[in-house]
Amino acid sequence: MSSSSQNHTEGCVDGLGNPLAKLRGAAAHCIVGRPPRRARRLYAIWLRHVRVYSKNLISNALPPFLEPIIFLVGIGLGLGRYVGMMDGVPYIQFLATGLLVTAAMFTAAFECSFGTYIRLEFDKVYDGMLAAPMSVHDLLVGELLWAGTKGFFFTVSVMIVTTVAGILPLGSIIAAPLLGFLTGTMFGALGFLVTSIVDNINQFNFLFSGLISPMFFFAGVVFPLENLPPVTRPITEILPLTHPVRLLRGLATGNLGWIHLFDAVYLVLFTILVGAWGIHRLKRKLVD
């Protein structure tokens, strides 16, 4: 092992000085004394996800990329012809604005439910990762940042389509990638919480059939919430997707009001509170 020791010493930090080197005996080489800084640890976790994901990029990324486009073409162009204007804009524009963040929701919710569960229970990769200088907190916050990144990425890809197809002027949706990121972390946080609760992987069907899919229709993506009976209002206000969709619409049309500030606060608070709760609960599954 001594042959590699000289090269290996480069860039290593011996944070403990001599005593530990002595413990290693005569053959002691570089000992990485200090754990990497927190930002570096989060980056390493994030990078792990990027690497694993991009390994099968086409099969991983193509379906969630095509889904909103198919919906846009099928419903927006097909059905949209009969709808005409909605909420003051052509229907295809109305729909496209909402679809900018739904892909972020779907991919992040998948990543932090099925993905997290498989890493936790089947592949046991967390056990490996926790053998490196990582805390459970690093592991999960890094993963949440990855969920946000996926949200960002898919929002941008839908954005490219709506821009190239001339559906939405780019200037009006310039904030969409940021909202895509926030939507990603929001649904990542929700995914964590549900993952911490389920007993087996099939129970995620409740999350997707019971919450995520209905949200697609009842959060103002496909039609304005004002069209629903007023009694449903409190429910739609609780649904997380309502807020990034309304905020993006406000930004796109320039009609901003206090309600949009509420949306932004909801988005951030939901992510922080539900995320912290989910991480706290998952920690019990990761640390005996």
Binding site: P35, A131, A132, P133
Partner: peptide, 11 residues
């Protein structure tokens, strides 16, 4: 974290 920096772990 300090310990895991110094250790190798084979679960």
């Amino acid at each position: 974290l300090r310990i895991k920096t110094l250790c190798g772990i084979v679960p």
